[in-house]
Simulated assay, not measured.
Amino acid sequence: MSKVWSVLACLFVSAGPACAQAPALELVLRAELAFARLADEKGIRTAFLTWLTEDASVFSPRMTSRKEQHGPEPGDPGHLVWYPEAMGLAAAGDLAWSFGPWTYAVKKGGPALVHGHFLSVWRKQADGGWKAVADIGVPHPAPERPVEPFAIWDAAPAVKTAPSKGPDATSILQRKEADLASAWAAKGGLALLPELAKAARVLRPRRMPLRELADIQKALEADRPGPRWEPARLQVAASGDLAWTCGESSPDDRGATASFLRIWALEGGAWKVLFDVRLPHPATPK
């Protein structure tokens, strides 16, 4: 865990145009680290019930609530460890995301049985603190070398973007999601390619997070045509430069369903997908 706590020192020496965000983003970082520390000390159930909002969306792989996933006693007895690889913050300072590696062991001090990456969405609360409103993760093979913490990603909005004229951001994103669902029904995952931000990450089970276009394209080719969806949740930052959506898709052309979480960012005046996470559901027994 010592590597986790080195993150705070890394924060203030990070380079790039997003460095101006450091003071505001530090509060989110401290919340993330406190969340991880509580899981290390008191267990998964206590940590998630403490740091997720009551209406938070979690995925396992189906979308469910914090209470349904983590409420029943005694909770998961395993040991979950994570730290942020990168984070981003809306210009309004009310919405943020965190992304990084995690490991799961049967008990504290035991060998890691599962490796993966998580994506969490954080929202500023009325008291000025931060809590997670969504949390999703994908398993993948153990990385060849440890993932380095911590980068204030240059994809994170660094300055407030002038609001666009016309319909509000929520309406625009509802339309973007509807158009993407229609295109996906015809083309499959390749419909996502023109919607990706320059520094986009695509997360799929059994794969390390994808950022190279050729790798992303290959992975998206495996996402079948057919499914449609309407986001179950859609939230936009007050500054209109960062948003997230999540939900579940209808069956694809082979009858498979999946959950998704997507983070959108304003890039060059247009909404682009910064993260796309898709978790297939287990096949329904016939």
Rank of each mutant, 00 (worst) to 15 (best):
W5E: 14
W5L: 12
L11M: 05
L11G: 03
V13P: 14
S14F: 11
A34D: 11
A39N: 10
D40H: 14
L52H: 12
T53H: 03
E54L: 03
V58H: 04
V58L: 10
M63K: 15
M63D: 06
T64P: 11
K67C: 14
D76L: 06
H79L: 07
P84L: 01
A86S: 09
M87T: 05
L89G: 06
A90I: 08
S98E: 00
P101H: 05
P101Y: 12
Y104H: 14
K108I: 07
L113A: 10
L113T: 13
W130S: 02
K131W: 03
H140F: 06
E144M: 09
V147N: 04
E148F: 11
P149H: 07
F150D: 11
P157K: 09
T161C: 10
T170E: 08
L173G: 08
K176W: 13
W184S: 01
A186L: 13
G189W: 03
R204H: 12
R207E: 03
L220K: 06
R224S: 12
G226M: 01
R228K: 09
A238E: 13
G240L: 11
A243Q: 01
T245F: 01
D252S: 00
S259T: 05
F260W: 12
R262F: 12
W264C: 03
W264V: 02
D276R: 02
P280L: 12
P282S: 15
